[in-house]
Structure formats: structure tokens, C-alpha cells
Design a binder for these strands. Structure first.
Lengths: 305, 305
DNA sequence: ATCCATATGTTAGTAAATCTTACAACAAAG
DNA sequence: CTTTGTTGTAAGATTTACTAACATATGGAT
């Protein structure tokens, strides 16, 4: 397309509006400007095209044949653009929110609270995806993701939602009264680990346990991991927030943790504008987390052993 | 149409160009701006519509589904506008020049010279209208008119083309050696007057001859008037420029004239832009007149009797 | 007739949108 | 591993678009 020889689009729009209303004043009103602006734009368009488009009578205006020709086409085209953009924004508003959440966060935090959000906002369609880390945070894909990490993902906006370092936990009925004197001792028990997750392995290596040390690892989906830990199926790692009640009651015991600066669950989005429904969801999430944290504060969390 | 909720047209154009080229840089080139301008416009459009339209990769860009949707429609509509304006300007260039000329000017001045203009500009179609003063100088109608007067026509642009006051002339072979001592004496001869013209009458009344004074008026089309005067069919009134040769040779005699400030033949146009072919014609007319006047200057015109 | 409400026209000055400049970061190609 | 080509960003300049205020003309109402 030859974009260089385009007449000023503002002038074209002003003329189209004037032609539609057969009046500069009304066109000005419909464009939220003064009649003077319209008059000047049309004059400049006439200069640009080299032909008169309107005959200025003292009461409204009439179009010249050239003006009629131009106006008919312009109203068509501008109309098409108008419905086009309206359709786009309407479709965007109606499109379900695509949210990717780690399985553990989904089951431990979201599942018990989500129905509240959905009943508060019955017109929002939510499409939850809780496969592990297979997120597609490219424009036009997922609207938002909740990920565990330190918040440093290049090209993405991340705000800390729920801070907390990975903590090694065991059920009291699994370990009895045993006192642990070093990380190596946990290998005496089965290790519960999420499918495709390596964070536990990384930690074991970090605290000096060689990767070829024999261990009994039981892998399961993240949404079942907490249940497994509670049941005493083995020793697992999770974020204290998710098991605050059990730690307080003594049903679960925190053995070790792995403090990393800024670690926690982050709310990750693409930079750029957000749909209103997304903003609602994000605000609701933040509110939910702070309520949750206020609740924890009333009963300070259990100490590490 | 709802003009208020229109996204910025500049942004839409920038995005359409970017979508067309799949590159900000090339879009910028094709719009004669910098890549920065395109990037900012698209960002502002994304903000306005509340959705991402492009994914910025390091080598060109890709469109999101929303972007594809918008781009397809926009390219259509902008394309329609582009061909629309091109068709308009092309049709304007091709449309014949509509020129309205007084019959006398047409026959006395234009007819002998017009072929030169037409052969110099073979691509210009000229549509001469020489009915008397029934001109339609409204936009979209006649491009230009040549009128006799003082140049004061409200709402029209008038530039003096050929100055000259109305002069009463007779053929030598009509009046013989008779000397005239007052305007009343011309009533002894037939008066040649253009159809629908009242200027002669106005002058007679002005010089004190009552309108009920008996007279012998012969009316004829303006293009035949000069010929009638030359033939000695009667006394007529015309502009000296048209009969300079005959006055010099003595074939015609100037009896009286009617000096009025600014009187003459004017080139009258609508205010506003002019088509190139019209500008050509106007310039040619001015040149032709000055050549004609230079010729007169070499042989100073005859004195009034 | 005269006044009023309503049009458009014009100009100068202001506000806002738009663009450029100058930089940075990064990827693919040579 | 530099070079070239791409996008991103911020600040400032420039251009564009608009407003304000007044002028002029028309048609209808008083």
C-alpha cells in the first residue's frame, strides 16, 4: 500500500463526519471538537486533494459532486473500521481468562478460594491450566501465570504474590519423635516429589548429598503432594504457607528450609495492557493472599526443629 | 456513526503498516517516519484497545491473533480509502475544464488564440460556455468565468485580466466625416446591442438621455456585435482593446467612453484550491493578454474624437 | 422590522499529539 | 566476534490539531 500519499486521516474523518451530518457544527459536536476545527480540517483536505468538497451555505453545508463521491466511500470505510475495533474489544472482553497455575498452588491455595471469585464475578469465564510449567506466555496466549521462583523472568512482569522458601516437611506420624541432625537423614524415608520437578534434588545436592546416594523417590502430581505429606507417605518439600495449620497443630513438622532471596510464588503477566477481567482476578488474588497472611500472623508459624 | 470511540487513526495506520510489512522498521520507512514513532503508536493503540496486537521479536514482529484480526480489516479499509482518494484526484485531473466566457470576449479575444493553448496542452479538455452571464460559479460547477465588471463579486476571487471601459464606436463608412458634439447625436444611427445586455442603456441614461427617447436598437449575439460595428450596421459599444487595429487604421472611430474605476474583464474563480489544468489556463490567459497589450503599446491607440 | 438563535469564516494563540534524537539491548549473519 | 539489523525507551522538539473570541450572514420569531 502506498502510505506516503495518504491524505491526512484526521481531515478525512472530519470531512466524513461533516458529510454525514451535513453540518460543520453537528459534526464538531459528534467528534467532540469545535466547528472551527472541522472547518479547518476540511479546508486543508480540499487543499490536499486539490478540489472543493463542500459548498458552505449559511445554514449547513452541501456536498459538491466530488464531496459526495468521497463521502460515500469514506463513510463505508470508516464504518468498517469502527465495527472492526468494536468487535475486537467486545471479543476481548468475552474471551475466557487463560490462567496457568502450578499444580501445587492450584490445589493448595486456589481450589479452596476460587469459587468465591467465580460467584463474585459470574460474567468472567476462567480457563485454568495447571500443567507443570508448560506455560505459553506469549501475546495472545495465556493471560497470567502463577509460578514459583525469584521473580526474574526476562520480558515478563512478575510481582511477588506469596513469599516462602521451600521447606522440608514430614508428618509426625511418619517420623515419630525422631530428631534430625542433618539433611542426609531424610533419605531414611521415602521422598515425595512432584512430577518433572527437580527442586528437591537441587536442594539435596546443595546441602552436600551426592546425587548417586541411594534414595527412595515417589513421584506424584503436585496437587496430590500435600496430601501425601499429610498422610505420612514420605518426606516432601513445600511452602510453609500451604501447611500452616498442620505445622501449628504439630501434625506436620518442618525439618529444614532453603532460604533464597525473593523466592516465592509470583504472579506473572505479559507487559502491556491488561483486560479488565484480568485486573479483577489479579486484585482478588492479592487480596486473598493478604487475608491468608493476616490469618497466619495471628498464630505465628511453628519453629524449625 | 460513533466518532467519539474511534481509536487514534494515526495509531491504526501505523499498526496497519507494521502488519503489512511484519516489521516496525520497514513500516516506518514506508510511512516516512522513524521506527520509534511506529513503536510508540502501536503501543498506544494496544493501550487504547486493551489488548496486545504484536509480539515483538528481535527480528521483525509477529501478530497476535487479535492483531491478525485487526490487521486484515484495517488493510482492507485503508486500501479502500487509498484507492478512493486516488480515483478522486485522477478523475479531477481528467475532468474537462469548464469555462464560462462572455460571448464578446470569446469571439474577440479567445477565438483567435485558443487553438494555440489547445495545441500547447493537448491533454487538457476544455469546455467553453459562452452564454451570456448564466454562469454557475458554485463548487463543482464552472471552474472559471471571464466577466465584465469592476471585480467586486462577493464570495468569488476576481483578478483583472483586461482593463478597459466601454467605448462608443462607429464605423467610418457609417458616419462619414460627421463630428459628434454630444451623446444624443448617436441616436441618429441604429444602436447595436448585445442580447440581454443593458450596459449601453445604462450609459445613455447616465449621460442624460431619457430612456423614453426614441431609438433604433438592433440586438444581436455578442459574438456578432463586433462584426456588425465593423460593417457599419450601426453604432455599438465595446472595449478598445478588441478593436485596436481598426481604430488605428481609421476604419472605426471611438466617439465617447465611460470611465469607471477598475472596470474591465475579470478572471473569476471560486476561492479555494485550483486544478493544475485550471492554473495552466489562467496563466496562459494572463500571458496572452500581456502580449496583446505590448502589441498595442507599440502603436498607441487612436484618440477619441 | 428587528432581534435572536444558529450557521459558517478567520485569526492568533494554546494544547496535544506526534515525531526525532540518542541511546540500549539483543539476535542473526558474515 | 564483530557487524548489521532489529526492537525498546526516554526526553525533548516539532508539527499538528484545537480552542477562544470575534465577525458575518441567514432564517425565523417577536
Amino acid at each position: 500500500m502506498d502510505w506516503r500519499n495518504f491524505p491526512s486521516l484526521t481531515s478525512l474523518r472530519a470531512f466524513a463526519a461533516a458529510a454525514e451530518h451535513k453540518s460543520l457544527t453537528q459534526a464538531a459536536r459528534s467528534l467532540n471538537v469545535t466547528h472551527s476545527a472541522i472547518g479547518q480540517q476540511i479546508k486543508s483536505l480540499e487543499r490536499e486533494l486539490g478540489t472543493r468538497l463542500i459548498a458552505r451555505t449559511r445554514h449547513g453545508i452541501t456536498l459538491t459532486p466530488q464531496g459526495e463521491f468521497l463521502a460515500a466511500g469514506l463513510l463505508d470505510s470508516f464504518g468498517a473500521i469502527s465495527t472492526l475495533t468494536q468487535n475486537l474489544t467486545r471479543a476481548e472482553a468475552a474471551r475466557p481468562l487463560l490462567v496457568s497455575v502450578t499444580p501445587m498452588f492450584a490445589s493448595a491455595f486456589l481450589a479452596p478460594r476460587l469459587s468465591a471469585f467465580l460467584s463474585e464475578n459470574p460474567d468472567i469465564e476462567l480457563n485454568l491450566d495447571s500443567t507443570i510449567e508448560a506455560v505459553d506466555l506469549r501475546p495472545g496466549g495465556v493471560d497470567m501465570a502463577i509460578r514459583y521462583g525469584t521473580g526474574k523472568w526476562p520480558g515478563l512482569d512478575a510481582v511477588l504474590l506469596l513469599p516462602g522458601c521451600l521447606t522440608v516437611v514430614a508428618a509426625r506420624n511418619l517420623i515419630g519423635d525422631r530428631k534430625f541432625h542433618g539433611p542426609a537423614e531424610i533419605l531414611d524415608y521415602p521422598l515425595l516429589q512432584e512430577h518433572a520437578s527437580i527442586e528437591f534434588d537441587t536442594w539435596l545436592e546443595k546441602v552436600g548429598i551426592r546425587s548417586d546416594t541411594p534414595r527412595n523417590v515417589i513421584r506424584m502430581p503436585g496437587n496430590m503432594l500435600l496430601e501425601g505429606i499429610r498422610n505420612g507417605d514420605g518426606i516432601g518439600a513445600t511452602v510453609p504457607s500451604f501447611i500452616a495449620d498442620e505445622l501449628r497443630s504439630g501434625q506436620l513438622v518442618a525439618l529444614f528450609d532453603d532460604p533464597i532471596p525473593d523466592i516465592g510464588y509470583y504472579l506473572v503477566t505479559l507487559p502491556g495492557p491488561k483486560r479488565p477481567s484480568l485486573t479483577l482476578l489479579m486484585n482478588w488474588l492479592h487480596r486473598s493472599v493478604s487475608e491468608h497472611e493476616r490469618a497466619l500472623f495471628r498464630w505465628p508459624p511453628a519453629q524449625l526443629m
